[in-house]
């Protein structure tokens, strides 16, 4: 008996020495909190999730990675959170290399994944205390910070209930709270509002904004333009494993050329019209959006071109581009 336990103890010790994390105190004084260069990742032979990503996320504020499903957002997040290794390229988070110094990266980040990873059979308070302890805090400090964060996220009253009894929005908030117990320099949120109702979505937005006021840098992924427009200081549009454009929301909108022509057409004319006009992006069944960098002059050329083809638009408007236009144009160009 004793021999068995002694053996097990010795073996565990040996493994712990082999696998233990060693904290390196990263020098974290930099303008960029995330620096990514030429990052590539393939799954199997067919799927290129990241096809050479370069990215620079400045410290402070919200940075949004905007892209459709399957664009590589989650893969990039998982590399940055040290959950998977890239095939090639480099990524540094808070000054530490994700491949060489994962422990330092983990100490600097908080992660809330796509599905709220809360422990259903622990109470809200127990969930946060556990995560705090795993960040290396003592029991009392972990409990104190848990209470503080629960308060901040409007969950103080539900602190003693099992997370199983929480609504979807409350779970999301608890998950967010858990990623903040360690007071991370960088908070990584993978689609923080996917699958929750509009009211809870606004709650989560408010909380993210307050976090940034408190000095945390937030890197989030989203497929909602509205979300990126509302929250993000800078946006990188990602499509098919590449960053196709990057800048502030206004810069991105300007890149479309300052104006957009929105056309309404008879359904039968739509494809013919799309073939005639360069840069046309379909919208719904009968709409077309065309970038108009020269404003009215472009509008006239466009209408003339349509009339020459015998097509009469049912509606014509010249307006400021939305982020939607930018996004559609950028991702359509790549296809």
């Amino acid at each position: 008996m004793l021999l068995a336990w002694a053996l097990i103890l010795v073996l565990s010790f040996v493994y712990s020495e082999m696998y233990l994390i060693k904290f390196t105190k990263g020098e974290v004084a930099m303008a960029s909190i995330v620096q990514v260069a030429e990052l590539r990742k393939r799954f199997g032979k067919e799927v290129t999730a990241l096809g050479g990503v370069d990215l620079d996320v400045p410290a402070g504020g919200v940075f949004a990675l905007l892209g459709p499903n399957g664009a590589g957002k989650t893969t990039l997040i998982r590399v940055l959170a040290t959950l998977i290794e890239a095939d090639s390229g480099t990524a540094r988070v808070a000054g530490a290399d994700v491949a060489a110094e994962p422990a330092a990266v983990r100490a600097a980040i908080g992660l809330a994944g796509q599905y709220a990873a809360v422990d259903e059979y622990l109470t809200g308070a127990e969930n946060l205390e556990m995560v705090g302890r795993l960040y290396g805090l003592g029991r009392r400090e972990a409990r104190r910070r848990g209470e503080e964060v629960l308060e901040r996220f409007g969950l103080a009253e539900a602190a003693g209930r099992y997370a199983k009894t929480y609504s979807g929005g409350m779970r999301r908030r608890l998950d967010l709270a858990a990623s903040l117990v360690g007071r991370p320099a960088l908070l990584i949120l993978d689609e923080p509002t996917t699958g929750i109702d509009p009211a809870s979505r606004r709650d989560v937005w408010d909380m993210i904004e307050r976090l940034v006021d408190g000095g945390t840098t937030v890197l989030l992924t989203t497929q909602y333009l509205e979300e990126a427009d509302r929250l993000a200081d800078r946006i990188a549009v990602i499509d098919r494993g590449r960053i196709v454009s990057e800048g502030t929301a206004d810069e991105l909108k300007d890149r479309t050329g300052g104006a957009v022509i929105a056309l309404g057409l008879a359904a039968a004319d739509r494809d013919k019209a799309a073939a005639t006009l360069t840069g046309a992006v379909p919208e719904g069944d009968t709409g077309l959006h065309i970038p108009a960098p020269n404003g009215y002059a472009d509008l006239r050329t466009t209408v003339d071109a349509l009339v020459a083809q015998g097509i009469e638009p049912t509606a014509v408007a010249l307006r400021k581009p939305t982020l939607d236009d930018v996004f559609l144009e950028l991702t359509a160009a790549a296809r």
């Binding site: 994390i21 040290t82 990873a117 995560v131």
Partner: peptide, 20 residues
């Protein structure tokens, strides 16, 4: 499946602790 392992693996904790 529930994502707990992702959370644990993103924390600065001992690697062996979750299986142990």
């Amino acid at each position: 499946q529930k994502g707990s392992v992702d959370r644990f693996r993103s924390l600065p904790m001992a690697r062996l602790a979750v299986p142990a």
